[in-house]
Each structure stands twice: as structure tokens, then as C-alpha cells.
Amino acid sequence: MSESSNRPPISLSPGQWSFTRWNTIGQLEALEVHHPLFQATIFLQGAHLAHFAPQDQMEWLWLSDTARFEPGRPIRGGVPICWPWFGDPARNPPEVRKRIHSDAAHGFARSVLWKLEDVRESAHEVEISLSLDANEDFADVWTGHALALLTFSFSVRGCQLALTTTNLDSNPMAFSQALHTYFSTADISRTRVLGLGTSNYIDALNDWEYCTQDGPVYFEGETDRIYESGEPLTIVTPAGSRKLTAVGSDSTVVWNPGPDKAARLSDFPDTAWKTMLCVETANAAGDYRVLNEGQSHTLGVFIGRT
């Protein structure tokens, strides 16, 4: 799915990095990329992409003005990693739910430290890989043993995330997940998502009733839907548009909290719902995945110019 140059980036050790630097933001360690063609910021906690912008362009992602960068606290905005379950545990399929020993939504990957595996740089691209070994250390919240490897690829054309899960357990592993991407918009009422017309979806605000989309997705208040589609999408905002191309996904989550829920959310200004939306590349609801011992699955998205 790569949209990058044919020339592979060169793997380098920290002393040799040309564009990538360590920084401490709040109480968290982060990798900041300052490339002549683009900029990006990744936190080790949650393998969380918080910032991406090509040269001379405005920020592509939305990050809350009140986000707090503290150990164990998920970051509001950017691209949180929901893994190894998505959403409310009780709303997951039985095969996924039986592994979960927590009431917390969206799994534990977004609030724990990941390990830096590699930084690869070239004149056109930077790739950064981080891993999470979900072993017996997480037995109090989840049953299983799996390796999550997340690779970010940045170029002037856009950014790509590829999350590969490998089952290291002897038993089959069922899981759900999402790349919970927050996008900026100047006005949610003049924003729409193209590519989901005629798709079936679950309306989480209407007792999980099945509905069918008719044309573009518009936002008229709180929106929380799981679409049965992994087709390419276009997000149109007053400032322009972005194209999303997914792999390993047959479900897409579209979310905006609206005014009432925004007032209840942590680290979320009351009026911020007017300037953001989430379009999430997912394996959610009936699109959950099962891996036998040693098997892997990659969920990915390329966010690019249209």
C-alpha cells in the first residue's frame, strides 16, 4: 500500500539520525521529525501520532487544545491506537469479549509504552517502527500473547500507518482494533465524507440498529457509526480534502461527539466538536479478526492528498 519513493529509507542508529530527534513533551517521550518536506510527532506512549503536516501546509490531524501528556493517560486527538479491542468490551463479539477482563474502552495499547524498533530516513521519506509485546504483563486486563508492530511512513504525499498483529499464543486469538484518526475541519457543518454511500452501518446512538447510508455522510450533531466498508474515502472540509486508502479493513468508524457529549468528555473543549471529526480504519463489530498461532494480520491506512 506504500505511496513512498522506490528507494528504501536507510536504517540508522540515534547518533546518525538526520531528521528525527528525541524530545520530552509534558511528561512523555516523543520522536519529532523535522524533514525538509514534512514534519511529524510520535509519542512512545501509545505509539501515538499527534502531528503531521507536509511542507507549507496546515496540520492534517486534530489535537485537543487541552490534551494532557501524562503517563497512563490516553492523548485526546491525533491517531490513538485501539487494540486489542475496540470500543466498549460489552459490545464486542463473544470471541473477543471473553479475552477482556476490563470495562475500559479501546484496549490498553493507547496508554502504555511501546518500544522503538527502527528509524529509517531518506531524502524523500522517514519510516519509524514501534512494537508492543502484549504478554503476561497484561493478564489482569486481557488473555493472550501477541506482538503489535506499528510502522509510520511519512512523505510529502502523506502519511501511512501499518499495524501488524502476530499471535504468539498456542490458541487462536480473536481481536478488534482501530486507527482512531482525528481530522481537523474549520466547520463540521460544512464537512462531509464521501465513499460510504449505500453502505450498511450500525448506529451506536440508536441501540445499534442497522441502517443504510444514502449519499455522503454529513454531520448534524453527535454521530457514532460503524460502517461495513473498507473502501477508499474522501474527507471534504472547507479547507480542502484528504483521501484515505485502507488495507486489511472491512469496517470504518465515523464519529463526532456533538455538543452534549463534548461537554462530558475529558481533555476536550466544549466547542471543539465543531472543528474535528474521526474517520477510523477498523476491524470492528462483525469485522473482528481471528489469528491462529504464528499468523499475522496488518491493518493500515494511507492518508494523502486528493
Rank of each mutant, 00 (worst) to 15 (best):
T275D: 14
A40S: 02
S4I: 06
P232V: 11
Q45P: 02
A162Q: 08
T143D: 15
G77R: 12
F19G: 01
A285C: 05
G258M: 03
L49S: 04
D260F: 13
Y218W: 05
D203W: 06
H51M: 07
A139E: 14
L205Q: 06
F219A: 04
S4L: 13
T271L: 08
N167D: 09
V156D: 11
T234Q: 14
I303E: 01
E228M: 11
N6T: 11
R73T: 11
L132D: 09
R289F: 10
S241R: 05
F138K: 12
L116T: 08
G248W: 10
T143W: 00
S155T: 15
L233H: 01
L31H: 12
S4A: 15
S155A: 08
H34S: 12
R7W: 06
S5G: 02
Q57D: 14
Y201H: 15
I25L: 13
Q177I: 04
L12I: 04
E70P: 01
T164I: 03
V247S: 10
S153D: 01
W114P: 11
S13D: 10
T223A: 09
L132G: 10
G230S: 12
P89F: 00
P9C: 12
V156I: 07
S129Q: 02
V217N: 02
L130T: 14
P80W: 05
Y182V: 14
S5D: 09
N23H: 13
F219I: 14
L61G: 05
R264G: 06
V254I: 15
E280A: 03
F183A: 14
H124M: 13
A40V: 14
H34G: 09
S170E: 13
L49K: 09
I100A: 11
Y218Q: 07
E293T: 14
A246R: 13
T298E: 09
A162N: 07
S18W: 05
V126Y: 02
N167V: 04
V254P: 04
G258H: 07
P80F: 06
C211K: 15
Q57Y: 03
V119P: 10
V247F: 07
R91C: 08
D260E: 15
I42S: 10
A246G: 03
T223L: 09
D203H: 08
F19V: 00
G158D: 02
G248F: 11
P14R: 09
G240K: 11
Q16G: 03
T252M: 07
S296F: 06
S249A: 14
P172N: 05
G72K: 06
L233I: 05
P54I: 04
S2W: 09
V254Q: 13
K261F: 10
L168R: 15
A162C: 05
